[in-house]
Design a protein around this nucleic acid. Structure first.
Lengths: 230, 230
DNA sequence: CGTCATTTTGATAGCACTCAACGAAGGTGG
DNA sequence: CCACCTTCGTTGAGTGCTATCAAAATGACG
């Protein structure tokens, strides 16, 4: 299938589709064809490009194929809050009628568009699909609640929790690479970039981490990092 | 059906059940019977009683029949955060395996318990039920996102948004009655009771509202109240 | 009327924001 | 290859908002 290029140079790799996530949707052949019919893309977005704009009709759901996608709201005064990051495999965008939040690429990303109405119609026939949709949504809800709880903690706690979570999810390798900009992390944690920077500096001074570059660090003291999460 | 009294004096009124919410679950007779079989209660809880404890197995979902229920987390140092309030008609509690948050009565409340596994099994056969479950969950998710956004605003903005929302939802009558304690509101808004109290006092001084009693206010200037929400 | 829980008010301190300037990294054109 | 520019991140100084601690006031209830 052709890869739609929103902008930028062409890309020769074969791109993933919903059909590459059979565990998500079940694997019956008729089901596969039905899903294929209502998907568009995957479309490639460069960092900071808008995937769906606030106020836009919410006809499609989004399935992240690669990269990182943020769901956020920008205010009149220019400030911005990020409500969630989505990683490859995540399906989201259940607004009714219109999107309240905008959806943007936090890093170069590929996103599959899935017709909302069509997916719902399939879900009404295939209980496996319905069950998957409910599971992902309740999972999103749980993460949103965790995020809300995090917003009532100190800056050091928020940053420690974010870094520790990231490190765990990325496999605890030698280097911890930040997949998004400091500005994005700050907006996600409800902090300014200055406070984020100062907090990381403080952690480095305390010997918890080391900065290799602005986007790459090393966790030196996991125990102490986890203690800061409380 | 008998009304289970958790504690306190008996209550002679007939209590609502899931069967009183046919719009929610569809109204086929077989469906009704199936739902009836897996519901327990309604059970009556007095204010501040625990309905489900953090760490407990999440075998049941909760349907609020009357009153107000809060979903919250209490920390070692005694501080507490409320993630959501649930009102009559709300169905919630989709934790996997164990509850991460505790569920408590924020005001005297009646709650219907619905076996999670049974409901899922019905949903797999009745697409209407599955569709309803998805709809309520996505709605919860949207509200949680709104709540997260609110946590990044000033105290006055948070309180104004809470009061305005409450006033709208309760029908904009002459009196605005607070259904929960100041402590609960503060924990929901991520503020201390002192800051909440001072904020309300400030609003009263500005002529936005009038305090009739601690639990009852009058909205004097709706326009100005809405301006504070930004 | 007394007791207890809840709310309000006051004084003070601390944490994160704001404003400002500097530094580092990456891209572009000469 | 280097000078230039732009973007992003870091550091510093000062302010402001909200939390904390303390105490008084109000209201509910027996």
């Amino acid at each position: 299938m052709p890869v739609v290029e929103l902008e930028g140079r062409s890309h020769s790799n074969r791109m993933a589709t919903a059909l590459d996530f059979p565990e998500a949707f079940g694997s019956a052949d008729t089901l596969k064809r039905a899903l294929f019919a209502l998907q568009r893309g995957p479309i490639r977005f460069h960092r900071d490009n808008v995937i769906a704009c606030e106020g836009e009709a919410a006809d499609y759901l989004f399935l992240v194929v690669s990269g990182v996608v943020r769901q956020c709201k920008t205010f009149e005064n220019g400030s911005r809050n990020i409500v969630a990051f989505y990683l490859p495999g995540d399906l989201f965008g259940w607004s009714d009628a219109k999107h309240v939040l905008s959806v943007e690429a936090a890093a170069d990303a590929m996103v599959l568009f899935i017709k909302r109405a069509g997916l719902l119609s399939i879900a009404s026939k295939e209980s496996q699909v319905a069950s998957f949709l409910l599971a992902t949504t309740t999972n999103d809800l749980r993460r949103s609640h965790e995020h809300t709880l995090l917003m009532n903690k100190s800056a050091t706690c928020r940053v420690a929790t974010f870094l520790a979570g990231l490190w765990t999810r990325s496999g605890k390798f030698k280097y911890l690479d930040l997949p998004v900009s400091h500005q994005d992390i700050a907006d996600y944690l409800g902090l300014t970039i200055e406070t984020l920077s100062r907090t990381i500096t403080g952690m480095e001074r305390s010997g918890l981490i080391t900065r290799v570059s602005t986007r790459r660090l090393v966790v030196r003291n996991e125990m102490a990092l986890e203690r800061m999460m409380r």
